[in-house]
Amino acid sequence: MNNEPRHMRRIVTAWVIASVIGDLLWWFLVGPHIPPGNMTESAHWNQFDFNVLAVTAIPVVFMVWLWMGYALVNWRDKPGVPDPVGGEAAKAPYRVQAAWISITSIVVIAAAIYGTVALIGDHGSGGGEGPNPVWAPEGAVAANTAAIQGKATWSPAGHQPLVVQVIAQQWKFTYRYPAFGGMETSRLILPVGTDVVFDVTSLDVIHDFWAYQLSVKADANPGVNNVAFADTHQTGQFMVRCDELCGIWHGAMYNSGRILSKTAFMAWATKTEAQNASNTKYLPPFAWTYTPDANGASGGLYPDGNVTPYSPYDTYGAKQPAS
């Protein structure tokens, strides 16, 4: 048995070296370029999160690959390879099984805990949180409630969150700014250094608002307000795509947006608001639908009048935040 090479020592040494090199290369060379980049707070943390998972995954991948490679080279059916051990001696050692199970469990549970902390700490990480967001930046929920009631304001001074309603339909996005008279644009323009509240909804089928570089992704469900948050860090251009199959032109449902400095944004917004004023005066500053409601133009769905009358604010928003 003394001639037998010390397989485990070799493999473990190679594995440690490879993992360290792999992790370092990833962290310093690849990691900084992993999307979605640094345009918002959550983009930054989601990138960080991806890299944490990657440096955890690399040793696992290398372990299996090295093990398989080593086995392929050394433990083949060829001259000089001893017969495998059978019988009792080939039974799996209990400690190996226990070690494997406990190590994988620890890694997995740690990953889940880490993910949870990252999710909560980063206010939902830019993901859609439904009509009643559970984790929100300070003041964002209050600003959103105000916007829903048509009382939104925003100014470059201070740290006021900006509310933007994202309205998806086949096959385009429209952005409505309740703080600027409910003006609507087809390009998403945002100020830098601001908490942005996206109220994502749809007029027809399910879409998904994916502002790629902002690391915001929220399904646009008809009649539902799906709220997501982003804290803008850098100025620049970003891409918006629909990320849920929404019919034949799904592939063409994209446009770009821009983050401007606060003053530039304010100038743009004021100008656009004035340009659109003649149209926006007929539109609500905030709504989940353009379709006639049960009390609407058609006289209601039920001629017997059995539908409880309701206000535009709590229509489709039966589950909206209490005002």
């Binding site: 039920y302 059995n306 539908v307 309701y310 039966a318």
Partner: peptide, 12 residues
Amino acid sequence: SSNNSHLWRIPG
């Protein structure tokens, strides 16, 4: 429980 559009059930 979602009672969408207040139309889970028309009264009566």
